[in-house]
Write a protein that binds this DNA or RNA. Structure first.
Lengths: 332, 332
DNA sequence: TTGTACGCGTTATCAC
DNA sequence: GTGATAACGCGTACAA
């Protein structure tokens, strides 16, 4: 039932080859015949079959993108950057969406490879380094906001970001700063390490509690933390999403963020600036990250065996209400 | 350089056809040889070429999804619903992401068709009915949260939602309720109409101001509205995203949402419940919408010429702080 | 402009 | 039942 090029060719009284050229805006067809061919195609309801075309030309132009979760705004920022860069050329973007718990990471990677991605840009991959490396053997992977030995990567300096956030809290007079950790996974310790460094340099003990990537879990963990009798004067969370959960819990207990206790997130997502929320955070410059990752991906397609590129951006502090003490630490 | 089935076949000492059967878990291969073939494939780093496979079998299993914008959480909800339903079967999901201003709608639709989607699920399409219908001639389209004559559609009853929100505001004692409109586009008047109906029934004049889908624009429009001397006691926005912009503006002017003025959004996105935001809104049950849309899409593939299906869910009011007067309307 | 050999799997049709 | 052979799906590329 599907209209093919053959059908269009027959109807227009030309060869299939010519129809192909016409549809690709390739030279070798008179403007006139091209017009005629296209209008015949339109009349018949023909649509150019990218699948067949991709099979025929084994030119490499497909960039696969793995996004773990559509609900986290950082990924949207990064995606936009990738999209912007890819659009400049004539490459194709293929998305695969996983789940926040990482349960679809492998399936997605495989699917991206099976659809013949020539390179994969992976965001928020939770797989162990070893497995990622295995997949990368079949198709180059550009990692964003993480590093895996031997692979291209682009990240905002997470260690520095963790340090900056911590130092900011210290500068407010906070001493009992708790770090709300993400699940312990390869490649996601940098923010934590930055925190620890800064704490030790201030001769303070790092304290961590562990949560997941869900806001609701962060909320619960925060309640547990405070129930346990711990009296933090600041909570630094591994990302904004979890920081919102922290705020949820604080508000439920009648604690005023930025007055009774300081809170910082990480990522500078849109939600961190929700009206009334005003969460201090660290901007990882997602759009930039995406743009650069896409650039590296395209280069990787062009030069497959060059040595891996690592690009590190400097994150930026974004100070809002949740760390707005007038300079002397939280009220008591 | 790419390993093909041929390579695997040669290495394993069997025919290409057999390798094909092995990789698809098809009957006709002894468990033993299948094992051998797969391990040879693994050794060579072969990945099954979905592109070629799709071309060879013209079985219909590809569901295309158009998402206008990754930053709006409703779309993530709907996507998750679609994803969940598709995963139950053996269909493939292909995403195409546009831009909030609609400038990529056509390009995305075309791209989805060119990659041989057998059906397209479209969210937040801003194209005129006429154009959508044209595209649907080439490949069936299932529309979400909108209706186009002749096409499958699944929506939460928007007229009812608009009415419910308005009636809730009226019940609080609000009389000067302003509706913040989205851009005037085919298919997106229902929420507004529900508002108008409810206002007229209460013998009140509907008042609308127009904005876009950007939070920043809503903020600006709200400032303009208030600068103009208008004294609304409630603002009902066409969606949560814009409602956040409204809240931004109110807070900037020192007005307390839920105390000085009521505010309602629409969609019940995660951001509407950000800590400190607590926006009253209307839940469109995005996940459900997505699930149902995917179901319809699969049926449409199976039975292309059946008459269009329209599914309408009932939206649900979600009451939070921004409409929390103690019952006598806003303070003065 | 056209003929035609690919590209890489899949799916009959056959042979053992 | 196991396995092989060859035609086919729909464009693209290159020689003619």
């Amino acid at each position: 039932m599907k209209i093919t090029m053959e059908d269009v060719a027959k109807e227009a009284g030309v060869s299939r080859a010519l129809v192909s050229l016409a549809y690709r805006n390739a030279p070798g067809v008179s403007t006139q015949t091209r017009q005629r061919i296209l209008s015949v195609g339109e009349k018949l309801g023909y649509v150019h079959n990218t699948i067949a075309a991709q099979l025929a030309t084994r030119t490499k132009r497909t960039v696969g993108v793995f996004i773990p979760d559509l609900h986290n705004d950082v990924f949207a920022d990064i995606h936009d950057g990738i999209h912007a860069r890819i659009q400049e050329g004539d490459s194709r973007l293929v998305l695969s969406v996983g789940k926040p718990d990482g349960s679809l990471d492998e399936k997605s990677l495989r699917s991206l490879q099976e659809t013949q991605s020539d390179v994969i840009i992976a965001l928020g991959l939770t797989l162990p380094d070893k497995i990622v490396t295995q997949y990368a053997r079949k198709c180059p992977i550009v990692i964003v906001e993480r590093q895996v030995a031997g692979l291209d990567a682009v990240t905002a300096n997470s260690r520095l970001g963790g340090r900056m956030a911590t130092e900011h809290l210290l500068s407010l007079g906070c001493k009992n700063i708790v770090f709300l950790m993400n699940p312990p996974l390869d490649g996601y310790y940098e923010r934590l390490d930055g925190y620890k460094e800064a704490m030790r340099e201030a001769a303070l003990d790092p304290v961590t509690v562990q949560s997941t990537y869900l806001r609701s879990d962060a909320r619960q963990v925060t309640h547990q933390l405070l129930d346990s009798g711990s009296k933090p004067d600041a909570i630094l969370s591994h990302n904004d999403r979890s920081a919102l959960g922290v705020l949820d819990a604080l508000i439920e207990r009648g604690l005023r963020p930025g007055v009774d206790i300081a809170v910082m997130g990480y990522d500078n997502t849109e939600a961190s600036a929700a009206p009334g929320t005003s969460l201090s955070t660290v901007d990882i410059r997602g759009f930039e990250l995406g743009r650069i990752a896409a650039g590296i991906a395209l280069e990787r397609i062009a030069r497959p065996i060059e040595k891996p590129q690592i690009r590190v951006l400097d994150p930026q502090l974004v100070l809002r209400q949740t760390t707005s003490f007038s300079g002397n630490g939280p009220e008591h």
